[in-house]
Amino acid sequence: MLLQINNLRVSIEDKEILKGITLKLGEGEVVALMGPNGSGKSTLAQTLMGNPAYTVTDGNALFDSQKLFSLEANERSNLGLFLSFQYPSEVTGVTISNFLRLIYNKKNNTKISPAKFRTILKEKLSILEMPEDFMSRYLNEGFSGGEKKRMEMLQMLVLEPKLAVLDETDSGLDIDALKIVAKAVSYLRQEKGMAVLIITHYTRVLQYLEPDKVVIMRKGIIVKEGDSSLAQELEDKGYAPFGE
């Protein structure tokens, strides 16, 4: 098991958001986590990555046999966990090229030259259909929604994680941009056997990334699990049949 979450309870500012979540995800598996707004999907993603604003009040999580909640966010990243943020921070003055090289060097415990890194990056940029001159811009500063999503995908390609948690990476994207995101994820699945936890409202993205399992969340608990046909059922009937 790559990720194992047991009876997880999470609060933010004393308000309980997750009320006992148990979820398993195997190596190379694709799981779609669906649910209406406010069901706690993003809270789960942020808690897995270690956002200090969220407090784990009960339960635990194992990632690659390691206890996740005692680790800092960077340590979780080093283990191979990646979160594609819904709202990535804008970091002024830090160029994308410098930043990507920095995180690449840390991940791979190396120190490669800017020139050499540029050739590594070229391939990844072409997957995402991003122009090279993009690299001199500052990290996420002044980016459109779509550009931010692509930037998250580019970092995923650089870090090559074992598990990518995609927090609504599909929302707000047009069909062409969505295909590009799917292409980046599929590339790492094929090349590196990356597992994926897709958090989404919509079934659209699942046409491109077929899930092994679909999980439906509502009001902080999991209300239903099933195979990919569950997504189709959602598409046809909406969330109403999965209420309390």
Partner: peptide, 22 residues
């Protein structure tokens, strides 16, 4: 936190932000 999630330690993340600031 965002930078830490990409594998930087807290000190490294702060150093990077200071650098970017200038």
């Amino acid at each position: 936190y965002y930078l830490e999630s990409r594998g930087l330690t807290r000190n490294e993340a702060e150093g990077l932000i200071v650098r970017g600031f200038f």
